[in-house]
Amino acid sequence: MNNKIRILITALALSQLAACASLDTVKPWQRGTLAKKEMQLNSAGLDNALDDHIYFSKEGSSGGRSFAGGGCGCN
């Protein structure tokens, strides 16, 4: 039973490694979409800044996307 679990975990780990190896397939000339503004992680920077400020002052959590600390007395 333990062996089966070990084999399963090994197989999963290998499949993850294989997936990682295949990540390196996006070539510079395939990056047209990735270069678009809509695809940037912080494409709506001001929306995110305003949202972070509201939720920082209304909820018990902050940060994650960027730094969480300091800022204002609104909390």
Partner: peptide, 11 residues
């Protein structure tokens, strides 16, 4: 405080 943040962008 500690956090994990995971973000995905799909076209």
């Amino acid at each position: 405080k500690q956090s994990l943040y995971w973000q995905n962008k799909w076209h």
